[in-house]
């Protein structure tokens, strides 16, 4: 019986918490490693919006594996904007009618305000002497990366390895296949997400090299010990373009379209670009890139379009059920 007043009080607080706050809320559904980035972006954007329009904006965040997040939006998680790891995940949302299929043309540069790439994080002193992709498949080297089936970042990693092998002199599909297959034989653990893999490598001390987003590797180094890890940039790697989009269906229903669009545009503004660079995402703006040049090593990159076509094609060829990853991935 004593529970009743407590229950009522809880319900009351919950109700007042949601109705009394008369500010605008926008839900940004994002992927795993962007937690720190959007915390700062949201604060800066909210301040700017308040200065210009007077409203209090609260941007709610949801983070998780990119594929899982896309599925949640399809299942009814009412995201106003999505900021995911790869275009296929937003394509999947578009396939269910929540936004136009040509969403990627609506914002500059394939709707990716920032980019990243795939690099190697090794332990201090690089004891296994890992310099480039072929070193990963040397005997005794253990490689950590998440499962491409559940992690967007790992799909970029898979494609980076494939593209590297393809671009070698005499490289072809068969050789790329053989190289990637061998690479996955060197993986003792497949975590579900990028953060899980980083924790396994850094906290649990498993493996010799972590294949990760550049932003994730640089952040891990900063958070978990500059002296403990080194970043190695391979001879060639992929230019990862994490896209953003307004989810039309939800934003229109909530009446948040204007603010949602302004939020995504803010990501392209000089202020937004500087915040992104500060969190180790490569900015699109040449000026900001110049400013942060010391932080980002020079890399040779290829894009999805250069080598594979569209993400839709990539998904069908490599990651769908029974496709190449299932044929050559671990366990085969």
């Amino acid at each position: 019986m004593k529970k009743l007043p407590v229950l009522l009080a809880l319900v009351a607080t919950l109700v007042t918490a949601t109705t009394a706050a008369r500010d605008v809320t926008v839900l940004n559904v994002s992927y795993d490693p962007t937690r720190e980035l959007y915390r700062d972006v949201n604060a800066a954007f909210a301040a700017q919006w308040k200065a210009r329009h007077g409203d209090n904006v609260t941007i709610q965040m949801s983070h998780g594996g990119s594929g899982k997040q896309a599925r949640s939006v399809v299942d009814g998680l009412s995201a106003d904007v999505v900021t995911l790891a790869l275009a296929w995940d937003i394509d999947a949302i578009a396939d269910h009618g929540l936004l136009a299929k040509d969403w990627q043309q609506r914002l500059p540069q394939n709707s990716s305000p920032y980019t990243s790439t795939i690099v190697f994080l090794v332990r201090k002193g690089n004891p296994k002497g890992i310099k480039d992709w072929p070193d990963l498949i040397k005997p005794g080297v253990q490689v950590i990366t998440p499962n491409p089936k559940t992690s967007g970042g790992a799909r970029w990693t898979f494609l980076a390895a494939w593209g590297y092998a393809l671009k070698q002199p005499g490289g072809n599909e068969a050789k790329a296949r053989a190289f990637t297959q061998e690479l996955f034989k060197h993986m003792p653990v497949l975590d579900a997400g990028a953060r899980g893999a980083t924790n396994t490598f850094a906290q649990r001390g498993v493996g010799d090299v972590l294949l990760a987003w550049e932003n994730e590797a640089l952040l891990a180094r900063q958070e978990l010990g500059k002296d403990a890890f080194e970043v190695v940039v391979p001879s060639v790697t992929i230019l990862a373009e994490p896209p953003v989009a307004v989810v039309d269906g939800n934003a229109d229903k909530h009446g948040t379209r204007a603010i949602a669009e302004a939020y995504l545009k803010f990501l392209y503004s000089p202020q937004g670009q500087a915040i992104e660079a500060g969190h180790f995402y490569r900015p699109r703006s040449p000026d900001v890139a110049q400013q942060f040049a010391a932080q980002f090593p020079r890399v040779n990159t290829f894009t999805i379009k250069d080598v594979f076509g569209t993400w839709r094609q990539v998904q069908a060829k490599f990651f769908a059920d029974g496709a190449i990853f299932d044929q050559i991935g671990p366990g085969n």
Partner: peptide, 11 residues
């Protein structure tokens, strides 16, 4: 709970 939560921080 993880499947039905949506993981909206603080909500």
């Amino acid at each position: 709970v993880s499947v039905v939560s949506g993981h909206i921080r603080g909500l």
